[in-house]
Simulated assay, not measured.
Amino acid sequence: MRSFTLKCLSRGRLFSLALITTLGIVAPAVQADTKLAMGTGAKTGYYFSVGNLLCKSFVKAMSGNKCRARTTDGALENLAKLRRGKYDIVVVRSDWALNARDGSGFFENKKPDAALRSLFSTHSVPLTVIARTGSGITSLKDLNGKRVRLGGSASRLARKLPYAESWDISGFRTISFGEMDDQRKALCKGEIDPVASVVGYPSSLIQKTAQTCAIQLVELSGRDIDRLVSGSDALSEVTIPANTYKGVTSPTKTFGYKAILLSSANVPDDDVYAFVKSTFENLPQLTAGHPALKGLQPADMIRDGLPAPLHPGAARYYRERGWIN
């Protein structure tokens, strides 16, 4: 987890932020010909929806400037085009950003991206383990010996816990991979025990599963996970709110990644400053505009899941607000 000096946001500051937005006071425009290109994801996915919402907020706040959220094939395309200067801002998951920063994982054949810069994080993309109600699976220790079905990202994240006393991937009776819809059907038929996926919430597929059979979410917490999260620049603790899914009436602790906005050191400070300012000064409308953004708080957005250094334009705005030193 990346650390830097963060000042507490008082209720007064948050009230002022809401008041500014309510009164319709927007940030002063930067150069009238500023054009931002943002790489997001598939048109039907969260990343495009969130990116498009942020672009519209920027255009509305910064009269005369432009921002276009572009559909893409995902993180590999986004980060490659950001490095080449084709995009000014991209939306990616925090683990992809970490790999690009270090030249690891899918980027092991490329040099580390020293120009990568963080703006802020948005919604959580946690490791979510669902089990049938009555299965007796309520925590990590209950998974050993079970027929666990893992999606690709869940498998990679699970393998980061080889030292965990309560999580031993070699102890799973079967480990198979497949599409989420296949997992849903197998779970409800009793062909597998829990299903583990790395997915934002609310997930339409988990909602569909909860409509098909009674489910419960498995809590993932404890000292092993605390140690994993504290030692990673990409991971954060996550609490999935109660009633996110049918029949799950209590909040569920877990951990996972963040969807984050990145830019490059080569993008002008003033452009990034204006984009970040428009985001935070219209945050109440933005959080109401998409279910994945519900409950976002500035303190979390500028702290969690940011592997790369803050862009100077973003840092300038955060210092003006008194959020960082």
Score class of each variant (00 low, 15 high):
residue 4 F to P: 02
residue 4 F to Y: 05
residue 7 K to E: 12
residue 9 L to P: 09
residue 9 L to T: 05
residue 11 R to I: 02
residue 14 L to Y: 06
residue 17 L to Y: 04
residue 18 A to P: 00
residue 19 L to W: 04
residue 21 T to P: 07
residue 24 G to N: 03
residue 25 I to L: 08
residue 28 P to M: 00
residue 33 D to Q: 07
residue 34 T to S: 08
residue 35 K to M: 11
residue 36 L to R: 08
residue 38 M to K: 02
residue 41 G to M: 12
residue 43 K to S: 14
residue 44 T to S: 13
residue 46 Y to T: 07
residue 47 Y to F: 12
residue 48 F to H: 07
residue 51 G to F: 10
residue 60 K to S: 10
residue 63 S to T: 06
residue 68 R to H: 08
residue 73 D to P: 09
residue 74 G to T: 04
residue 75 A to K: 01
residue 76 L to Q: 03
residue 77 E to W: 00
residue 78 N to G: 05
residue 81 K to H: 11
residue 85 G to T: 05
residue 86 K to W: 00
residue 95 D to C: 06
residue 97 A to R: 12
residue 105 G to Y: 02
residue 106 F to Q: 09
residue 106 F to P: 09
residue 111 K to Y: 04
residue 113 D to L: 00
residue 116 L to G: 03
residue 118 S to Y: 03
residue 122 T to H: 12
residue 124 S to F: 02
residue 124 S to P: 12
residue 127 L to I: 05
residue 131 A to M: 04
residue 133 T to C: 07
residue 135 S to I: 02
residue 136 G to L: 05
residue 138 T to Q: 13
residue 138 T to P: 15
residue 140 L to Q: 06
residue 140 L to I: 11
residue 142 D to L: 06
residue 142 D to F: 06
residue 144 N to K: 07
residue 145 G to A: 08
residue 154 A to Y: 02
residue 156 R to W: 07
residue 160 K to V: 06
residue 160 K to C: 11
residue 160 K to G: 09
residue 161 L to C: 09
residue 161 L to T: 09
residue 163 Y to D: 12
residue 167 W to H: 03
residue 171 G to A: 11
residue 175 I to S: 09
residue 175 I to Q: 08
residue 183 Q to M: 15
residue 186 A to G: 09
residue 186 A to Y: 10
residue 188 C to Q: 09
residue 190 G to M: 13
residue 191 E to N: 14
residue 193 D to K: 10
residue 198 V to Q: 15
residue 200 G to A: 14
residue 209 T to V: 10
residue 209 T to G: 08
residue 213 C to R: 09
residue 213 C to G: 06
residue 215 I to T: 13
residue 220 L to K: 06
residue 221 S to D: 11
residue 222 G to K: 13
residue 223 R to W: 14
residue 224 D to H: 15
residue 233 D to T: 15
residue 235 L to R: 13
residue 235 L to Q: 13
residue 236 S to I: 14
residue 236 S to K: 15
residue 240 I to C: 13
residue 248 V to I: 12
residue 248 V to F: 08
residue 249 T to L: 10
residue 257 Y to G: 02
residue 261 L to H: 04
residue 269 D to Y: 03
residue 272 V to H: 05
residue 273 Y to S: 12
residue 274 A to D: 14
residue 275 F to T: 05
residue 275 F to P: 01
residue 275 F to N: 06
residue 285 Q to V: 09
residue 289 G to R: 00
residue 294 K to C: 11
residue 297 Q to G: 08
residue 303 R to T: 10
residue 310 L to C: 01
residue 314 A to Q: 01
residue 317 Y to I: 05
residue 322 G to V: 00
residue 325 N to D: 13
